[in-house]
Design a protein around this nucleic acid. Structure first.
Lengths: 349, 349
DNA sequence: CTGAAAGCGCTAACAC
DNA sequence: GTGTTAGCGCTTTCAG
């Protein structure tokens, strides 16, 4: 394949010649380095404008040994999940957070061993300065591979309780606990839950929060605990709508009298609502549903659902901040941030 | 900011030394160039494996004048739309189509003049070989800017009837026509439509197809035309659910007797169904709804909606093919591809 | 403060 | 077939 780059593009040298200075000076001006006389700087800037000079990325990257880009990697075999609002929102948030830093965002999917290997080569090739990793399941090896290669990496969501690699996570236990307490406080007591895939730590945490609120009532503002429900009140889904529907049917079959459900995702909540309706239950009057993720799908299905909102913009900012910090001083300890969630009530509307 | 690249990474030269050959030979092996003795090739490969050599991208890019990456640009001020299934699906399809070519995908948002400028600089910096552009509204200047700079560009969706820049589009007129004919053929006659933003050519085309089917019945298998409806049967949305809802309410107010609606997107169809239900109409028994885009949202709302499916995978493949062709021979004429759509009937289920 | 010079790691053209 | 060489355009010392 022949060279692709437009030829005749002005180079730093052209600018230097036109401005009557050396290349080094132009470089300093372009990079806003201190120690250039103001008049010189202006002359160079004029030349740059006149020539329409734009720095060549490859050269800069080669000389400066950096890429000015970070990869956002989605390790999710089920790409369909990328359609989930949570991913789209995350991409947007990260993109926004990155905008000021001058870095560019590279979106990459890793859906299996082959693509994982391919991405590692890619990263090793120096095309990114760091990696943001979303949707890592329990045993995902990519973060460790990257860490071993010395590539700055930050996860959105831990893989396990003792995640070593840097991460940003939300307080899933607390969010679920708050949701269930709210239900208890509003008079519901037969409360079931639909979890995410239990090989994901996020799903385990939400389940734990549910159990804590029901079984213990450890904190003083907690409603009276009705005793921990057994596993028949728990159904596992995989974050898809269909799984939410199926899980809800199971729960209804086992406990026709249930009057509230905590669902681990927006999409599954939509499925659960369908199943409830099909069973002739009124939502949320007859059965209260609380879904995680304050996003559109479940709201389409029923606008009065209560949700546990994840602060996506803050997640994005935190991810970028951690990554930049890691790039600054590669000495490092791992960095961890856990963000609070927020209950958004709509069912009283 | 200090250099970021891991240091001590083996270079081509290290490989050459270890294998006891020259750099050129290693380069040939790495690039699968012909004309290397088999034994030599194997020796080099062994050295590569032993050292864990990975080519440095920046150097390759600088010397070879290409980036091995293409940008997928979404020019959409309303980023929220990125959450739409159509975008997620498009990203996936393009990503898949690109996988074989060894190129990488770069996702970029352009939400206004500032970001547009920024992206042009980015592209001029030689960081991408070509650009795929999605969701261009009528007056979007980016494609022309890129074309002028000699950057290979392919649009998904024309901006107007006489789009000059290379594009892949689907047969929106035909799709809408087919849908309306299907409605006519099944005994509906009071047919309204909810369009997309009419500053987008795609929306204009779908509206035209609707009008052609109703007003003319030009082809022999067309059902009897009831005469072209006036503008009161047309409501404009912006592809969001809320706009679909509002548009449907307007249409119902103007024409309580309508018995079918053609909706220009999946999401708006979901909104329309909500509005119909709220008005006490049964869907699709009482009112038939056809939405464009065979995607999940409207199906969540009502599983029996008929849809016009856009062949997303083929779109992805076509986009990539056109772009690669353009990269191969930069001589070029513009290349245009229009894909067929397909009616997917579900309302008889 | 500024110019000159030495690479960054690779490709491609040209010798041998 | 294979080694050698000249850059690609920029950053970064190092002198002045």
């Amino acid at each position: 394949m022949a060279g692709r780059q437009r030829t005749g593009t002005p180079t730093l040298e052209d600018v230097a010649a036109l401005a009557g200075v050396g290349r080094g000076t132009v470089s300093r001006v372009v990079n806003n380095a201190a120690g250039v006389k103001d008049s010189t700087r202006r002359a160079v800037e004029r030349a740059i404008a006149e020539l329409g000079y734009v720095p060549n990325h490859a050269a800069r990257s080669l000389a400066g040994r950096r890429a000015d880009a970070v990869a956002l990697v989605v390790t999710e075999a089920e790409w369909r999940l990328f359609g989930e609002p949570f991913f789209a929102e995350t991409v947007r948030a990260v993109s926004d957070a990155l905008a000021d830093s001058g870095m560019h965002l590279l979106l990459t999917l890793v859906r299996g061993a082959a693509e994982r290997r391919r991405f590692v080569e890619y990263a090793r090739g120096g095309r990114v300065d760091g990696v943001l990793l979303v949707s890592a399941h329990g045993g995902e090896p990519l973060p460790d591979m990257l860490a071993e290669l010395g590539i700055a990496t930050v996860l959105l969501g831990r893989r396990s309780a003792d995640e070593p690699v840097s991460y940003v996570d939300v307080d899933n236990v607390g969010g679920a606990r708050t949701a269930v307490r709210y239900l208890l406080g509003s008079g519901r007591s037969a409360i079931a839950t639909i979890t995410g895939p239990l090989d994901m730590y996020v799903a385990q945490c939400r389940l734990r929060g549910y159990r804590e609120a029901l079984g213990r009532g450890t904190e003083r503002d907690a409603a009276p605990a009705p005793g921990a429900p057994d596993d028949s009140w728990v159904a596992e889904g995989d974050f898809t709508e269909e799984s939410g529907r199926r899980a809800m049917r199971e729960l209804l079959a086992r406990h026709p009298g249930l009057d509230a459900v905590l669902v681990a995702s927006d999409t599954m909540a939509a499925g659960a609502v369908h199943a409830l309706r099909a069973a002739g239950r009124r939502v949320p009057d007859d059965v209260a549903v609380i879904g995680f993720d304050d996003f559109p799908l479940a709201q389409h299905i029923h606008p009065r659902l209560t949700t546990v909102r994840q602060p996506v913009d803050e997640i994005g900012r935190a991810l970028v901040r951690l990554l930049l910090e890691e790039l600054e001083d590669s000495a490092v300890a791992w960095r961890h941030v856990v963000l609070r969630t927020e209950l958004v009530r709509r069912d009283s509307a």
